[in-house]
């Protein structure tokens, strides 16, 4: 198992979001976290990627607690949150260059290829505020193609994408799983992946724990 959570517990505003949550994900697997609005999907994903330290239990990567190997884990993990992490006054090229540099590499050719694959040819040097919400989302998703992470943690990755964009992203997720990656994601959209998807439902889990 490359990534595992053991006995995870989280409480927010005196409300238990989940307790005794155990799961693990191995290379080649896709795990979908389901639950109603407010059931704690985003909180769970933020706990898993290391942005939220308010939990008890253990999260381990390759057998080691992630809190002890934070930088190694960050190198192998990609997180896509609700916010795009794209500065609107900068161009896609500048945004992605900074992303690459903060992950320790520089590769302009790959940035151009990633933007081309997401249908943003000609937008490389246009400030992001001049683009539509969907296009900004695509710039954000270009990071997926640049990152060399084994574990993807995606929070509502299909937001603001058009139909074709959704299909392409589903294809990318399935391809990543086939190539030996592991993906944890939340979505309210009906997933159509041509690879097996495991599901954790945070609503029923609370019932099970009682």
């Amino acid at each position: 198992m490359m990534f595992a959570a053991t006995n995870l517990f989280c409480e927010r505003d005196e409300r238990v979001l989940f307790s005794h949550l155990d799961f693990s994900i191995a290379a080649g697997e896709v795990l979908q976290v389901q639950g109603a609005n407010g059931s704690g999907k985003t909180t769970l994903l933020r706990i898993l990627c290391g942005l939220n330290p308010d939990y008890s239990g253990e999260i381990s990567w390759a057998g080691q607690d992630v809190q002890n190997i934070r930088e190694t884990f960050n190198r192998h993990m990609f997180y896509l949150g609700h916010s795009p992490a794209i500065n609107k006054t900068l161009t896609p090229l500048q945004n992605l260059r900074w992303y690459c540099a903060s992950h320790g590499f520089s590769d302009d050719a790959a940035i151009f290829m990633a933007l081309a694959e997401l249908g943003l040819v000609g937008y490389e040097n246009i400030p992001c505020y001049q683009m539509s919400a969907g296009q900004q989302r695509r710039v954000s998703l270009a990071r997926l193609l640049l990152a060399q992470a084994q574990l993807w943690i995606l929070d509502e990755p299909f937001t603001a994408l058009d139909k074709q964009g959704v299909t392409e992203l589903e294809g990318r997720i399935a391809a990543k799983a086939k190539a030996g990656g592991a993906i944890i994601l939340t979505t309210h959209h009906a997933l159509q992946l041509n690879c097996p998807v495991r599901v954790i439902n945070l609503d029923t889990l609370i019932g099970a724990a009682k």
């Binding site: 290391g50 942005l51 960050n74 609700h82 916010s83 992303y99 903060s102």
Partner: peptide, 12 residues
């Protein structure tokens, strides 16, 4: 815009 989250999650 969430860049801060990416900064905190960067391996550098």
């Amino acid at each position: 815009d969430g860049s801060l989250e990416q900064l905190l999650l960067s391996p550098q």
